[in-house]
């Protein structure tokens, strides 16, 4: 349904132009949950924002193929492209509170989707929104409709965001770290909600996260991203039982049973800055197994059905 080949994103800054995402591939089938994991700054958000056409003006996007239901949405006319956004493909953002407009009632912000895409009357949109609020677990939906974002908790705001994103039953829902900003108890509720919605509407979900715990709970397939490069793509079961790339191994190692749900932080070292150019493996400087060979360009290798990784080992 969604196919991405060789997507690269560059940023022009005062320090020069550098790539934030390199040669990103993705296939997404209906009803599937694909998880994109990686540390902060690895390019997860940038990648999805590029797909939605929401990147800032200083970005350059290159790709061989992007097709959504057979259409290249990035090349559509502006008005046509907009008819996809928020309707067939929508996105939930990292920070629920700052992602909602502080000046408008949360209900009206959701109702706007109905009004703008379907031309619903004010009343109809309002009723649908209240209905939707109840569906995403907002108690007392009628009154919450009239609240402003600052009057709601983070979890409530995230529910509003979810309501907004699923209002028109999109084919693809991108959730960018939907639980990072929330309390642990709320996290599970939100994830369950996403899972239920996915079941109900049979939509595909791209779930971006730091958290291997979330991956374990939700994903069908997993894409591991490291500094803009895919280092491993695999089904979840295979990844957990037989991780190939040392980075994935380290990520999983940072997830002892008792620390489930915590942010990963146990890999030593930091992601090298984007303006540093690598010919070989980008992870080599932090890798326990690094050998001189790692400085050469490395291709994706197969490790069985639906399992690719980028490492010489």
């Amino acid at each position: 349904m969604l196919r991405i080949r060789n997507l690269s994103v560059y940023f022009q800054t005062i320090k020069g132009t550098f790539a934030a995402v390199n040669n990103f591939d993705l296939d997404l089938k209906q009803g599937e949950i694909v998880s994109i994991v990686g540390e902060s700054g690895s390019g997860k958000s940038v990648c999805m924002l590029a797909l939605m056409g929401l990147l800032s003006k200083n970005s350059i996007i290159k790709y061989d193929e992007i097709s959504f239901e057979g259409k290249n949405i990035l090349q559509l006319k502006d008005s046509q492209r907009r008819s996809y956004l928020g309707a067939k493909m929508s996105m939930i953002f990292q920070e629920p509170i700052s992602s909602l407009n502080p000046c408008f009632r949360v209900g009206d912000q959701v109702a706007e989707v109905f009004r703008f895409h379907q031309g619903d009357s004010k009343k109809a949109a309002q009723d649908k929104t209240i209905d939707l609020f109840t569906q995403v677990g907002i108690a007392d939906a009628k009154h919450r409709y009239r609240d402003y974002p600052h009057q709601l908790s983070g979890g409530m705001n995230q529910r509003v965001m979810i309501a907004m994103a699923i209002a028109l039953k999109p084919k693809v829902l991108i959730a960018d770290e939907p639980t990072t900003a929330l309390d642990v108890t709320i996290q599970a509720q939100i994830l369950n909600l996403l899972n239920d919605i996915r079941d109900k509407y049979n939509m595909a979900l791209i779930l971006i996260t730091h958290d291997m715990g979330v991956v374990a709970m939700m994903a069908d397939r997993v894409v591991t991203l490291y500094r803009g490069q895919q280092v491993e793509i695999s089904d979840k079961e295979q990844l957990f039982s037989n991780p190939k790339h040392p980075y994935t191994v380290d990520l999983l190692a940072s997830l002892p049973e008792e620390a489930k749900g915590k942010r990963l932080n146990s890999i030593t070292g930091v992601i090298p800055p984007l303006h540093e150019i690598f010919t070989g493996c980008i992870y080599a400087p932090r890798c326990k197994f690094a050998v001189p060979e790692c400085q050469k360009p490395i291709k994706m290798k197969s490790a069985g059905k639906n399992h690719l990784y980028r490492c010489i080992r």
Partner: peptide, 24 residues
Amino acid sequence: DYIRTAYAKGLSKFRVVGIHALRN
């Protein structure tokens, strides 16, 4: 962020700038 959200909803630039941004 909320301007990006408005664009993600598929709103036109006119609406995003003239209503969502201007109001703030």
